[in-house]
Amino acid sequence: MKPGILWTILAALVMVSAIAFWLYNKPHRTAEQRPFVSLSATELFKAFESDEISANENYLDKIIEVHGEVDEVTIDMDKNTVVIFKSDDPIFGIRCTLEANNTHIKPGDTIHLKGICKGFLSDVVLTDCIYLKH
């Protein structure tokens, strides 16, 4: 076999293993990128409440910026901050998971967040949310 072919095979092998290694260790998605859409909490809730299937088609896995009045702030079992935005519904709204260091957010505040849309339970759920200073 010519040495040139050997080198080509070796280089291909190195490339394939590098790609495999990168894929295996690739980082989790964040909401750092530009949001796909910016909506009020009421608008986003209404989209899911009125037609969940088409809202899933439009928003699932997308980064969404949402703004509105904070109804409730709690802490989940992994100590992340959880913010619920008010909507037209008396109980449910937009449920957003943020990192633990967001304790400055208080009920009654009007704020902007962006996060990854995971779907609709009784609330619309956004995770990996980032607090936006506006």
């Binding site: 894929l23 295996y24 989790h28 998605r29 995971k118």
Partner: peptide
């Protein structure tokens, strides 16, 4: 979609 794994892959 909100199940979190150690590895993104």
């Amino acid at each position: 979609k909100s199940f979190r794994f150690e590895r993104a892959l």
